[in-house]
Amino acid sequence: MSFIKRNEIKKTIYEAVLIIAAAIYLIPFYIMFTQSLKSPQETMMNPLGLPHVFQFDNFKKVWELMHFEVAFMNTFVLTLVSVVGIALISGMCSFTIAKRKAKGYQYLYYVFVCGLLIPFYMTLSPLIKLMKDLNLVDSLMGLSLAYIGRGVPFAVFLYVGFIRAMPHEIMESAVIDGCSPSTLYWRIVFPMVKNVTSTLIILNTLWVWNDFLFPLLTLQSASTKTIPLAQYMFYGMYSSQWNLAFASYLLSIVPLVIVYFFMQRSIIQGISTGGVKS
């Protein structure tokens, strides 16, 4: 058997394994999609088969019962403020830490790194207590501040490494040409770390959008519920109606699927480039 034929056989085997793995991975999505389009009786009698009659009214019922538009706007605002805040604060802070020669800035960097070493659940109780003392409980802006504080250490860790690797000659030339520190950052440095910024935006968006525990502990009124929290409460009320429960699951993931569909190239490039410093 020739070398080329052996490679073709190996390639075929790898592709078959990947196809089987993808099919297994998609089974839960198939069940969720088909169950969301069935009647309550059919979900019990025919759980794995295709629906005989597509019940698209399930999504309309879920939308009205969940008040999905309110939960969506709350989640969108919370995610937008948190992600933008993390990117802006950590980027400017990292630029100062990376390019200042004083030892105090290096110690400040170590303080941020220590934020990565402390487990989140160890800080959860004192953080909730602090938010209560500052009247930030049951507030989307208060919760966004907590997300920013939690996300900045990792962002600083990434930004500092990339900014330190930049050629000093570029920044020195900009300073000689009369660039102020703010102009130097926004015109020179920030465009050069766009891949890191893309990575952080993607990872933090997935984190904040899908987070359940923190909103559960801090958001109390119905007007501030996020999508995961509203979906959880909906399931608790309608757990016996699996068709509505699965329809609520599908509605909850649709926004992220749409974002990924339009940004998949940026997502792959940002994560692959941001994961390895060049």
Rank of each mutant, 00 (worst) to 15 (best):
C93R: 03
L229Q: 13
Y25Q: 04
F72P: 01
L217W: 04
Y30K: 07
C114S: 13
S36N: 03
A146L: 04
L206I: 14
I202D: 08
Y14I: 14
F157G: 01
L136Y: 07
G275T: 07
V113L: 15
I31D: 02
M263A: 15
L108A: 14
D138G: 05
V137M: 14
V113T: 09
V189P: 04
V189A: 12
Q41L: 14
T205C: 12
I9W: 12
Q269R: 14
A102Y: 12
I128M: 02
V111P: 04
I86W: 05
L244S: 08
I202P: 07
M32D: 06
P228T: 05
L130F: 10
W207H: 07
F261V: 14
L251I: 14
L116T: 07
A23T: 13
K103F: 13
I188W: 08
F212P: 01
M192I: 03
T218K: 01
Q55F: 09
H67Y: 08
E64H: 11
F72T: 06
L108R: 06
D138R: 06
Q269W: 02
V189H: 05
L134A: 08
K5Y: 08
M192G: 05
L229F: 14
I89V: 15
F212T: 01
F212L: 06
K11F: 10
V137A: 00
V62D: 03
T75I: 00
Q264M: 12
I13L: 13
F56R: 08
T197V: 15
I13V: 15
S272P: 00
G270C: 09
S39C: 05
E42V: 11
G274L: 04
W207F: 13
F76S: 10
E64R: 13
F120D: 00
P51Q: 05
T218R: 04
C114K: 04
L158D: 03
V70D: 11
A146T: 10
V175M: 01
V160T: 08
V152N: 05
K129P: 02
I9R: 12
M73R: 11
L130N: 08
G142R: 06
K103N: 14
L217K: 00
K225F: 12
S139M: 08
F112R: 03
S2R: 09
W63H: 12
Y238M: 10
M32R: 01
N210M: 03
L78M: 05
K60R: 13
V137L: 11
M263N: 11
I31W: 09
I13W: 11
A155R: 04
T224P: 00
F76M: 12
G142Y: 05
F72S: 01
L143P: 02
L37I: 12
E169F: 09
S240N: 13
F33L: 15
L136K: 05
L217H: 00
S82W: 03
S82C: 07
V62H: 06
R150C: 01
N195T: 13
S139F: 08
K129R: 13
V17L: 15
Q41I: 15
E172I: 00
Y107D: 12
K129E: 06
Y107C: 10
F29L: 15
R6N: 12
I188N: 06
E8W: 08
K194S: 15
M192V: 00
V276Y: 08
A155S: 14
F120W: 04
F95H: 15
I170M: 11
V257P: 03
C179G: 07
V193W: 08
A22C: 12
A16S: 13
L219M: 14
I176R: 05
G161D: 06
G104T: 10
F162K: 00
L216K: 02
M1F: 13
V84R: 01
